[in-house]
Design a protein around this nucleic acid. Structure first.
Length: 676
RNA sequence: UGAUCCAUGGUGUAACUGGCAACACGUCUGAUUUUGGUUCAGAAGAGUCUAGGUUCGAGCCCUAGUGGAUCAACCA
């Protein structure tokens, strides 16, 4: 058996390498370090799955650490939301940690830095410091306070902590290198004064550590072995390491930071700042609006943890910029829901259907499969009667043979019920159909095993009995933005791309009565429509369903109007020609791998295809890179054919052949000499 | 104008120390189907950004370009 080693992402490769170099596996430790200033989104899911996935894979602890070093932006509400989301995704953290728990240790280390002459208090304005910082292309200049005495720095820093100074008046800076090409090394700030109560430490502190100072040291305190973050922190790594250098005990584990590319999803935005803007400006109903790419939004919409984990798994981890197509996410949720969702019937846009040969007042309870994918899922009852609703778009008075649904004179099956035939329609004064009259084949009842019940008909429709239907509100969602990459345009604001039709509310959908017992956790498939789940806005007596995702719909696809179709059909002749050239290139690709009869056969077929192409098509290929010998051979053969057929020599031809004749490839030389 | 990172089908990722570019989504056929879903069978689509070089052999190594991203918050 051929062993197919599962391929590792580059982070896993780094860990495997460390392990191979003697790093003890039991010391592996990871962390997921969100700042509690917003809700988690599908991009965070990548990081969560990476870190916790690594924890599961190597049986290593993973901490949930809140990077709460800035009380002016952080709130307890976010802490709770984040914990809920991570837990919902099915991960268990080893410890719940807070950077704020390390404030004293961080302060003590900072004092040590001052004593070591590695940090100083700067009392300049932020503008002055920014000016001294230089730019990425020009070095900065030293602060006038850079060489203050240790005593003075200590005194100032103590008084900063004591609350003697106003916010913005003093900062503690590391003394590194104002001329570094890395901006983060130009005497970065360790502490600033913030006059705000912290969600955990309250008013115990008025100086707060900056991210860089807190993060690496927190990793060190927790003995995190691999500190994984997104690529925008790459430039911070040098500082991360510098800070560690100042305080690390060689006997203890020294964390290392590695960076991966953040995951982007098409037709949405993935920055907390922008998501917050959507929430604050009421473009959505909140962080958990089902259109949001947040974990809580996806949950409310009906996504499952396993679908999100599958998505993270399929999307992978790498270092290049990416925009993953939402269709991958949709694939993941459909795949999961197909296995678990209970099949029911609901009509969103109803038209009345009367079965004229079915007794008035008669009601039958029919049996409907809960889930054909799961033989153990059982059945439930659906009431059937003379008057039903079907979907308006499932009926056309006259239809083409491609339309598998109901039309006058044609037969369809009503799912789990009878085969019916449309006989006539009743219209209102505007010509709108208000009723469809049909007859049922009363021997064709589903599941009876009669010959009539086994008949094959073109289509199957979903329906509900009018007398028994329960009403529900249904919310259908479309992409929040109309552009694939709404924040990818320098000249335009992402809000310009908001989709005005991202929410469609159907106030009165008709559902089969079974849905009356729906609970918030239940997943349903409204047959032929899509997957639905109860929204948290639902109350007793008021059902509200969210459409999680539609079923794949190949009918809708082939039904799009010709002008809406992406590619205009090419004229036939053109296509023929193009494919001839294409064939030549295809054969050429592999020609250097061939020999003997196969080689001769390949040359022959190139020559044949060459009969169909024009010189104008071929000429661009003269510029083919020298190393692509196969293509050049194919071009030489084709050119030979064209010349034989009367193409006259020109400079381009001559220089191409000249180069070919002096090439080191024998086949190419041979073919290039033939026309001569 | 500097530093750093990245570049493989439409999209996202693979290709272990160089050996005929793979997987998934998407797209398109066909079969099955009481969901135009699912399932099954199959197809198209990439010379791995460009040009050189090393090598018997390069997506992978080297050089030079090109393109994109990131970096100058008392944010993280």
């Amino acid at each position: 058996m051929k062993e197919a080693p599962e391929s590792l992402n580059f982070i896993e490769q780094i860990i495997e390498e460390d392990l191979a170099n003697g790093f003890p596996q039991e010391k592996l430790r990871f962390r997921f370090p969100p700042e509690p200033n917003g809700y988690l989104h599908i991009g965070h899911a990548a990081s969560i799955c990476l870190n916790f996935g690594l924890g599961e894979k190597y049986n290593a602890p993973v901490n949930l650490r809140f990077d709460d070093t800035n009380p002016s932006k952080e709130e307890h509400e976010y802490v709770e939301a984040i914990k809920r989301d991570v837990a919902w995704m099915g991960f268990k953290w080893a410890n719940e940690c807070y950077a704020s728990d390390y404030f004293q240790q961080l302060y003590d280390w900072a004092v040590q830095l001052i004593k070591d002459g590695k940090a100083y208090v700067d009392g300049q304005s932020s503008e002055a410091m920014a000016a001294q910082k230089g730019t990425p292309t020009t070095p900065g200049t030293n602060s006038p306070h850079r060489n203050q005495s240790v005593e003075e720095n200590l005194d100032l820093f103590t008084r900063m902590k004591a609350g003697e100074f106003a916010p913005g008046t003093y900062v503690l800076r590391a003394k590194i290198d104002m001329a570094s090409t890395n901006m983060h090394m130009r005497d970065p700030i360790l502490y600033r004064i913030i006059d705000k109560a912290h969600h955990r430490s309250g008013t115990a502190w008025c100086i707060y550590p900056m991210y860089d100072w807190a993060h690496g040291e927190s990793d060190y305190i927790e003995q995190v072995s691999h500190s994984l973050c997104t690529l925008e922190f790459k430039a911070h790594r040098e500082l991360y390491d510098w800070y560690l250098d100042q305080i690390v005990d060689p006997a203890k584990l020294r964390p290392k930071q590695r960076e991966f590319a953040r995951r982007n999803l098409s037709y949405t935005v993935m920055s907390k700042r922008k998501l917050l803007e959507l929430v604050q400006n009421k473009h959505v109903s909140g962080w958990d609006d089902p259109r949001m790419p947040t974990i809580s939004g996806l949950r409310r919409r009906g996504y499952t943890p396993s679908a999100i984990r599958k998505f993270s798994d399929l999307a992978g981890i790498a270092k290049r910029d990416n925009v993953t197509d939402v269709s991958l996410l949709e694939f993941c949720i459909r795949e999961d829901l197909n296995k678990i969702a209970t099949r029911v019937m609901a009509v969103l846009d109803p038209v009345k259907l009367v079965i004229t040969n079915y007794s008035e007042g008669k009601v039958e309870m029919l049996e409907a499969e809960n889930n054909p994918e799961d033989p153990n899922s059982g059945t439930h009852e659906v009431p059937f009667s003379r008057e039903l609703y079907i979907e308006r778009e499932d009926f056309q008075e006259e239809a083409s043979k491609k339309f598998f649904r109901l039309s006058l004179g044609s037969e369809v099956r009503l799912k789990s019920a009878y085969i019916i035939k449309a006989e006539s329609v009743i219209k209102d004064s505007n010509g709108n159909i208000v009723e469809i009259h049909c007859t049922a084949d009363l021997d064709s009842k589903s599941g009876t095993g009669t010959e009539a019940s086994m008949r094959k008909v073109k289509g199957t429709l979903h329906w509900v009995s009018i007398a028994h239907a329960i009403q529900a509100e249904v919310r259908e969602y479309d992409r929040l933005f109309l552009d694939e990459s709404p924040d990818g345009h320098e000249d335009k604001n992402f809000l310009d791309f908001l989709n005005p039709d991202s929410l469609r509310v159907i106030p009165n959908a008709f559902c089969e009565p079974y849905l009356g017992k729906a609970g918030l956790q239940d997943k349903y498939q409204f047959q032929r429509l899509g997957y639905f789940t109860l929204d948290t806005d639902s109350k007793d007596g008021k059902l509200i369903f969210n459409k999680t995702v539609g079923l794949k719909d190949s009918w809708a696809k082939q039904n799009v109007t010709p002008e809406a179709k992406p590619q205009a059909p090419q004229p036939k002749q053109e296509q023929g020609k193009r494919s001839a050239l294409n064939e030549i290139q295809q054969i050429g690709k592999k020609i250097t791998n061939l020999s003997g009869e196969k080689l001769e056969a390949a040359k022959e077929s190139i020559a044949q295809f060459a009969e169909e192409i024009s010189y104008e098509e071929l000429e661009p290929l003269f510029g083919t890179a020298a190393k692509k010998v196969g293509t050049r051979i194919a071009v030489a053969i084709s050119l030979g054919v064209l010349l034989k057929n009367g193409q006259s020599r020109n400079e381009a031809i001559n220089s191409f052949l000249e180069a070919a004749i002096s090439d080191e490839n024998e086949i190419l030389r041979e073919e290039a000499q033939k026309p001569g």
